[in-house]
């Protein structure tokens, strides 16, 4: 008897928690190994998947009667994941880091210029049909005045 609960019931709860953690670990293994390595930002995806194993480890530590391990890993696992992602971004991530890949900045500048141009020119939908007709007529008059005929 522990906390007024039958030992058999505690053993059953421990067993369920262990099975859940084992299943989570196996699911994470399948995810990490089957994810397409040609995807963009796949390293961050792998860190994300391995977060499942962190949670499974904490559950297993609790089920095995080791709350100290679970508490330590509960605090250290997010720090670890953040440190790994940060290190990858600043050292090897040529897809997102403009320091490692300056062409990202050039692409962003081109996109901003395109956006400015789109904002300055009004769309044809905004103009009334009568205004468009007036513009066409004025253009025809101008072409006649040019004396190209």
């Amino acid at each position: 008897m522990m906390f007024g609960i039958d030992a058999g019931l505690i053993s059953l709860i421990q067993s369920i928690l262990l099975v859940i953690s084992a299943l989570l670990i196996l699911i994470a293994v399948a995810g990490v190994l089957k994810i397409d390595r040609n995807l963009d930002n796949v390293v961050y995806a792998r860190i994300h998947i391995l977060g499942i194993v962190d949670v499974a480890g904490i559950i297993a530590f609790i089920a095995l009667g080791q709350p100290l391990f679970a508490l330590i890993y509960l605090f250290l696992a997010p720090l670890l994941a953040h440190a790994l992602a940060n290190a990858y971004f600043h050292s090897e991530d040529t897809l997102n880091n403009p320091v490692l890949n300056p062409s990202i900045l050039d692409e962003e500048e081109i996109l901003e210029e395109d956006e400015d141009i789109l904002v300055e020119t009004p769309a044809e939908e905004d103009l009334d049909s009568s205004e468009i007709l007036d513009i066409d007529e004025s253009l025809e008059e101008k072409s006649e005045d040019d004396g190209n005929d």
Binding site: S11, L12, Q14, S15, I16, L18, V19, S21, A22, L23, I25, L26, A28, V29, V32, L33, V53, A60, L64
Partner: peptide
Amino acid sequence: MDILLICECFLIIALIVFLIA
């Protein structure tokens, strides 16, 4: 055989698979 022992063995197998991964 105790059910807790079976579950612990299942966890060990999952952990070995994870170690290889």
